[in-house]
Structures are given as structure tokens and as C-alpha cells.
């Protein structure tokens, strides 16, 4: 494997966003790119990352390899990179280590690190293609704000999408709270757009602790996409450049 990333910051942000949810995971490398799929310890949430080969330049992976990496170790090394550094990941065919090289584009500084790999027996889950009842895209910062505001009142949030809009509501010991967003197009600031595509109304309840955790990815993309259907996990997607993505799935709360 040899994969060169124009900005080390991208990988740094991705790992930073998921490291509190999953600890040890396999980075599955093949000629289409680098993928990661991992559940949190309690099997409530699933992280799915895809960094497509096109996100790297160049990208070369001659043989499929799984790099088992402890994310807190990876984060320690990624913190040694300057945000603007060029990052090259390298690994052999049957690797014991993954090699990370940081190059400054402005100076002649070159730093090199090896991280010891681990054997991780990780099961891959099959994520079915789903036609979601509601797909909401909104500013990532707005979603983060709503989750952070509501967690002050309650541990869970009901997300209800109707043709009127999308309502995030919660109730807790001190009282209730709700934030409603309607579809909104801002021609001058399209990054503030809220788009709600609805085939049928849907209402589901989720743990806010996990949503707040997902929102650590807000720095990766201006927009977040929420996809909901009755009785299936919520998809929270941050789209990255070159069709790469960071997706989180969250199992709904069940029964009453």
C-alpha cells in the first residue's frame, strides 16, 4: 500500500471523530481505497468510513490488506503532523507496521512514524440498500447545536419528519424542548440550506449521547445528511471530497 493524502488534516479529523466510539479497527485497503467498518462496544452504533482511491494522489494497493490499528495510537501519531502536511501511508504485503510520513510543503521537514499493527477479528455487517422515508440535509453545525442543546434536558430525542418539517423533541426531568426546522433555501448562503425529502412521515427516537458523539465529525463537512425510515437505524452521513464519506448508523430506541 502506498497512499498519499494532500492534507494530513483529513485523516486526523476522521480519526478524531470516531476514536471515542470505536477503539481498535481494521482499515481495509484494496484498489478502490481505504474502508473501515466498526461497531461501538455496546453494539448500538456503527461507523462506516470510505476514503476512495481518488481522495489520494497517488494511490496504489497491489494486494488487499487489513491494517488493524488502535485509534488512540493512530491519533497520537497524527497529532505529530501539521494540518497542512502531506501524509503518505505505507504498508507491506504482510505488514507488522503501518508507516506514516509527514512532509511539510513549506519547509524541508520530513517526519516518519511506524505504528505496530494488531490482529483484529472484526465481523463485517451487511448494510442493506435502503430507500429512506425521509432524507434531511442541513448544516452540520446546526445539527450539532440541536443535539448539544437537547442533551441538556434529556438522554433521548424524538426525530419526527413530516411535510411540515423536521422536529427534534425531548422531554426530561426539568421539562421539555423541541426544535423544528422547515425546508429552507438561502440563495446567498447555500451552506445554510435545509432540504427535507419525504416519501412518508416518520418518527423515531434515538439516544442523544451517540448523536452528540457523531457530531464530532462536523468539522469534516459543512452539511450533514440524516436518513430515516421506520424501524431501521438512522444514517448520519458526512460527505467528503471525491465521493469519500464518513457514515454513522444508530439503532433506534424500541417499544414504549
Amino acid at each position: 500500500l502506498e497512499a498519499r493524502l494532500e492534507q494530513a488534516n483529513l485523516l486526523k479529523k476522521v480519526v478524531d471523530a470516531i476514536k471515542d466510539l470505536v477503539q481498535d479497527c481494521n482499515f481495509d485497503c484494496n484498489d478502490s481505497g481505504i474502508a473501515l467498518q466498526a461497531m461501538d462496544n455496546s453494539h448500538v452504533a456503527l461507523v462506516s468510513m470510505m476514503l476512495k482511491a481518488e481522495s489520494f494522489s497517488p494511490f496504489r494497493c497491489d494486494r488487499n490488506i487489513a491494517l488493524g490499528i488502535n485509534l488512540s495510537s493512530l491519533m497520537k501519531v497524527l497529532r505529530c503532523a501539521q494540518n497542512e502536511d502531506i501524509l503518505t501511508l505505507k504498508a507491506d504485503d504482510a505488514p507488522d507496521v503501518v508507516n506514516l510520513v509527514f512532509e511539510s510543503s513549506e519547509s524541508d521537514r520530513l517526519s516518519e512514524y511506524d505504528i505496530k499493527l494488531m490482529d483484529i477479528d472484526q465481523e463485517h455487517l451487511g448494510i442493506p440498500e435502503t430507500e429512506y422515508s425521509a432524507t434531511i440535509s442541513m448544516p452540520a453545525a446546526e445539527f450539532q447545536r440541536i443535539c448539544r442543546d437537547l442533551i441538556a434536558l434529556s438522554e433521548s430525542v424524538a426525530i419526527e419528519a413530516t411535510k411540515e418539517g423536521v422536529k427534534f423533541s425531548c422531554s426530561g426531568d426539568i421539562g421539555n424542548g423541541a426544535v423544528t426546522l422547515r425546508s429552507h433555501t438561502n440563495v446567498e448562503k447555500p451552506e445554510l440550506n435545509v432540504d427535507i425529502a419525504l416519501s412518508e412521515p416518520v418518527a423515531l427516537t434515538f439516544s442523544l449521547k451517540y448523536l452528540v458523539n457523531f457530531c464530532k465529525a462536523s468539522g469534516l463537512s459543512g452539511t450533514v445528511k440524516l436518513c430515516l425510515s421506520s424501524e431501521v437505524p438512522l444514517l448520519v452521513e458526512y460527505t467528503l471530497a471525491s465521493n469519500s464519506y464518513l457514515r454513522f448508523y444508530l439503532a433506534p430506541k424500541i417499544g414504549d
Binding site: 453494539h43 437505524p233 439503532a251
Partner: peptide
């Protein structure tokens, strides 16, 4: 009281 769903009940093992 609502319980928490398990992601493995929705996405089967590959």
C-alpha cells in the same frame, strides 16, 4: 420505558 435497539438486529453478519 423505551429500550435501546441493537445494531446487529438490523444489519446481519456478512
Amino acid at each position: 420505558k423505551a429500550g435501546q435497539g441493537n445494531i446487529m438486529n438490523f444489519f446481519g453478519k456478512k
